[in-house]
Design a protein around this nucleic acid. Structure first.
Lengths: 183, 183
DNA sequence: GCAAATTAATGATTTATTCAAG
DNA sequence: CTTGAATAAATCATTAATTTGC
């Protein structure tokens, strides 16, 4: 008797499909509200919590990366053998990583709706998409009714990125000024 | 005028003192309920959120460790110079880590009150102190009134580890059945 | 054909590294 | 330079595939 309800989340095929499609579309590190949305949408297809979505993206990203890394590491030095961890492959690795970095950039962060023409490509990575913590709210994490009246059609067009009211996050209530005074 | 409420938490001396004392006592990775307790207690001395406590322990642990690592790395090879990242110090590093591991074990996890004699030292690390996520609840994270009427005496004896009712967590009510008709 | 035993995938947690405010 | 905050990498642990012997 499966009295033990199993300890971990087990994505349904639909959920997995959607997640993968989202990843392919470019979603990599969804922020709080995004995770919230994703979770509620996916909860239509089965039990799921916010942290599952969060973890999934973390893991998938990491593993895609490492898979890729492996590939081009081998491609570059097919005769390299892993025995004797002499640790001389730093150069290699570095190169690979750099390349990876580039590939990552190829699919830029989520839809920048506004994308004001001032393409400030001057850098300043500015991560700050991190406040998913807020999202991890037991109130809906535990609850998550199996189907929250979502009328998502079968075709599910990957949630139109309509700003649901929450704008850029990155400045919710915490840092009121990311001005970053250089020095 | 400090219109901008400052972007990050700024521990008061008292808070810091308490945290350090707790660390010294052996607290390293407090779980949800512990963090909750700590937070509310510390909130008496100034504004603080659960995540601050969480991060503080993370960082403090990591930095103590790396400080220590540095120390004994230098002690062992005082003539080693950091220039030229030739990457030959893997051995060293590994050793250092191992030693660190040991030191960690020296001050075992928080008071195991019961400590039933069946000291199942047979292993199976069983981490699972992780469900801090539950804890990160906006309801008290954001709120956190500057002083929640706590009558904590000055002496504050580092919160008696009275099990507040929540026992092991680790198996709340998550996934019930991964039936998932395979195909 | 089927279950116990192994192996491969992958969800979940911890640790190390990095970024940037003060 | 210190350190709070955030992310990426490494690791652990459990579930699903699969192999194997019957």
């Amino acid at each position: 008797m499966p009295q033990v309800p199993s300890t971990r989340w087990c994505p349904t095929p639909e959920q997995l499909m959607i997640l993968e499609e989202m990843y392919r579309t470019g979603v990599r590190t969804p922020n709080a509200s995004q995770i919230q949305q994703i979770t509620s949408h996916l909860s239509y297809y089965g039990k799921i919590e916010g942290k599952n979505v969060f973890y999934w993206f973390q893991n998938h990203k990491a593993r895609e990366r490492q898979k890729l890394r492996r590939r081009l590491s081998k491609q570059q030095q097919p005769n390299m053998q892993p025995l004797q961890g002499a640790g001389g492959l730093d150069e290699q690795r570095s190169e690979g990583l750099d390349l990876l970095r580039k590939l990552e950039i190829e699919c830029p962060p989520q839809g920048e709706e506004g994308s004001s023409s001032t393409s400030a490509s001057s850098g300043t990575s500015l991560r700050c998409s991190c406040e998913w913590m807020k999202m991890v709210d037991p109130s809906f994490l535990e609850g998550t009714p199996p189907c929250c009246g979502i009328s998502t059609p079968r075709t599910l067009e990957l949630f139109p990125t309509t700003s649901t009211g929450l704008k850029d996050e990155c400045s919710t209530s915490k840092s009121s000024s990311c001005s970053a005074s250089t020095s």
